[in-house]
Design a protein around this nucleic acid. Structure first.
Lengths: 365, 365
DNA sequence: CTGTTAGCGCTTTCAA
DNA sequence: TTGAAAGCGCTAACAG
């Protein structure tokens, strides 16, 4: 060892196989080796124009030889920027992605990330605590799904001074938020079934905390308001004999699970409104396996219009919502905040549309 | 303003609507207000046991009043931990998630994240540069997909001293890696078609850089070795008349796009081997739209066995690979490294299995 | 049980 | 064109 620089030493032994977690080479090592100040090294990397090209060259050269990479954490501490946005989810990551809806939403968010040079952090509860995860996240802002505006998480976000945008939440005016017309979507889907003559109808709904319709909030509340409106039009209500509400996990697996409970209802439903295509697809698949014909023996209408919904058998009748747009708009709103740009309207409501395919048919027809 | 503490001032004006990016309240503000040292404040949050409960109380109380949240970046700089792992993808996030394969993989990784209290950062190229993204990522380690071991990204990872695990790569012994038996999967799927009597077969393959089979590497190479083996068994080769290779995007959209090119081949193929279910599903869907019956007029075999593959019409014949396990095992390997745990074997090869469903049938039968 | 002190590795005025 | 020095906000020896 001729050199007294630990930096160089680690470079010499930088054989991939031998590689040890030795003294990490820092900006100081480079400065010393190149015979310049830390400032110069920093400039060489971030504003090469402010140095003579020779100096820049020399510094970059030394850096390359010693295998130097600036520490992004230290950089972040100075700049207060992480170049990442987060998406906070109240459940496990695996659960979240078990519904293709979430993948498509993330895809929409991802489009904006790429445009803006951001990475996307998926933030699930940390050892059971979503709050802890929110405190710890190294992000410049985030999108919040599946939570209400009064959730503690939102308080922490505000406390941390992190810009955020909510999706599918009843947020107050000053909170940025992207929603869809849940009322209309729900109303139309049930109306569709009622007009086809169905009167024994089960609603396959997300899991809520309480399980009681009266306490539903947010998306769930709006959709049930829509169902009520449709029922009322037909002279029915949620309490009518023949109308049932079953909660299940919002995934294909949830649909599979709820199928049996569905079939034990009295009277047995001739149609199902699912609050998500994933649930609907699970129900249809299970019906198949049990030899029950959809739509002849059971009509099923979904909600979302996933990419695969038109490809399952039978192609799914459903309420289309612009999932990718939802993610994209939310991310745009968020990045406006992060970048300090002004955004005109911070409350967005996207339209929905009933798409009639083959999974529903006239009762007895 | 009676108080001279800017911290308190910001607390007083902490009305959500009025909220400004004023002086962020730091550990110093809390220490001052509570009449203790920074150390004490730090302890109150991280090792409350080392303080008298009164002191802890008081500190936490002040913190609450002033709306203090520890700065996770500063914390990371000390601890050198971020509590996040990354998954590096060479394309846009939206592209990645357009293939359900990726969602399922991420789901597998996510299971481990939840167990270990980690968030998951999806890292796409930053303004076109995956290298820049790799330099900037605030992570403790990462999983690398769709890249070869000699990629620059891997060099940077090593330079940054970040543990990493590759998926689907021809990695040297000392690089942790999770693969499947691509050769066998490919061989069996094509063999299946050949045994059904098909001789005019198109391969619908991922996009490679070169487009030339001879230059394929990694997964692509192994699979084509498998195809060669199957063909040889039937006295054919990749050059035989009737055998074609078309590249397309690895997504449903890719399958839709490749359909037309497929139908223009001479002789027109009676069967297709797709390198991914997403592609297969896109092809089948388009065939439907064009009134072509699958499998009667065109047999299609996929690769992956996605959750939806059994639910499309007709249910897809495909090669099952344990996607979630792949993600889980990779994440386990990675976290062993991150936590400094020893892992016995750092090269894992998962098995595959041909699953015959309804999208293939005997030629002319 | 509590405080002093020295960093973590980088950015960024400000002065030379 | 370059460098000195003061932080960024927190953790963790170490000393008392």
């Amino acid at each position: 060892m001729l050199s007294k620089s630990p930096g160089q030493e680690s470079a010499v032994t930088a054989d991939p196989a031998t590689e040890q977690a030795q003294h990490r080479v820092t900006i100081n090592d480079i400065a010393r080796q190149a015979g310049v100040s830390k400032t110069a090294v920093s400039f060489a990397f971030n504003m090469p124009g402010r140095l003579s090209s020779e100096t820049t060259e020399r510094i970059l050269d030394v850096a390359r030889r010693l295998g130097y990479a600036p520490n992004p954490i230290a950089r972040s501490l100075n700049t207060s920027r992480t170049n990442a946005i987060g998406i906070i989810v109240p459940q496990d990551i695996a659960d979240a992605f078990s519904n293709p809806f979430f993948s498509q939403l993330v895809g929409g968010i991802g489009q904006v990330c790429s445009d803006e040079g951001m990475s996307l952090m998926v933030i699930p509860p940390m050892r059971g605590s979503l709050l802890d995860a929110t405190y710890a996240a190294l992000i410049d802002g985030c999108i919040v799904t599946g939570l209400e505006p009064r959730d503690e998480v939102v308080r922490v976000l505000r406390q941390r001074n992190l810009p955020f945008v909510m999706i599918d939440a009843d947020a107050p005016e000053y909170v940025a938020c992207v929603n869809i017309n849940d009322f209309e979507g729900a109303r139309q889907s049930l109306q569709h079934l009622l007009r086809l003559g169905h009167r024994d109808i089960a609603i396959a709904s997300f899991e809520s905390f309480s399980g009681k319709v009266e306490t539903y909030t947010g998306t769930l509340k709006h959709r049930f308001d829509g169902y009520r409106a449709a029922l009322k039009e037909a002279g029915l209500s949620l309490q009518s004999r023949g109308i049932h509400n079953l909660e299940c996990k919002c995934s294909i697996a949830g649909g599979i699970e709820v199928y049996n409970r569905l079939m034990q209802l009295v009277p047995r439903p001739t149609a199902v409104v699912a609050l998500s295509d994933a649930i609907a697809i699970g129900i249809i698949e299970t019906a198949h396996q049990h030899g029950l014909n959809v739509p002849a023996q059971l009509s099923v209408v979904g909600f979302d219009d996933l990419e695969v919904s038109k490809m399952v058998r039978p192609p799914l009748t459903t309420v289309r919502q612009p999932i990718k747009d939802k993610g994209r708009r939310a991310a745009e709103l968020l990045l406006d905040s992060v970048r300090g740009r002004f955004s005109l309207s911070r409350h967005i409501v996207l339209p929905v549309e009933l798409v009639v395919r083959k999974s529903t048919q006239r009762l007895g027809g």
